[in-house]
Amino acid sequence: MRDVSPPDTFYRSFDDEELMQRLFHRDLTAFRTLYERYGSLVYSTCLRVVRDAQIAEDMSQEIFLRIWRKPESFSAQRGRFVTWLTSVTRNRAVDEIRSRNRRYRHETASPEEQEWEIPASEAIDPALTAELSDQRRLIVTALEGIPSEQRECIQLAYFGGLTQQEISERLDQPLGTVKTRIRLGMQKLRSALTAELRWEA
């Protein structure tokens, strides 16, 4: 088998978009560098949604291989790579649980039993790059700062893959209430993040 040298300082000095460009050159070391940066984030996001380590692994592999085979799926004009990657990952994971005949949702039918713990914002995580750790500190702080019922709706939508209608049924709250919670919660997150958000194009 062809050996791929581990990412070195040279490759680590590339930003994500430069590494993606190198995938058009079929550069396996560039690909490996991207995996080194984001493998754990993709895996953890999948795991959070599907709650099954084996499925999370399979999905992470599928997502990364798709990037390798079709780097043109990402368009740098549309924004930063990491934003795109997390969107693709979350959507893929949610598609998975939706297609798995909603079993996961019924297993965790009671919102009170659902654990939506947020990691401590100060925690330094070896699985994340320094930049991602900074970003996480921001979003965790912002998420902690909004009312818990807004937070819950946002988490049920993002990680639980529920529509607003489904959230309203799950929480036994009027649909209008759920819509308002999501809108207000997201607006607060956005304004809390806008000043420092570096995930800009």
Partner: peptide, 26 residues
């Protein structure tokens, strides 16, 4: 809004991906 939503992925508890995953993918 999409950038904000994308950041939410970072609030998942971080788990180091198993070493076997890198081997498989590469």
């Amino acid at each position: 809004a999409q950038r904000t939503a994308a950041l939410l992925a970072l609030t998942a508890p971080m788990q180091e991906a198993p070493a076997s995953l890198e081997t498989r993918i590469m």
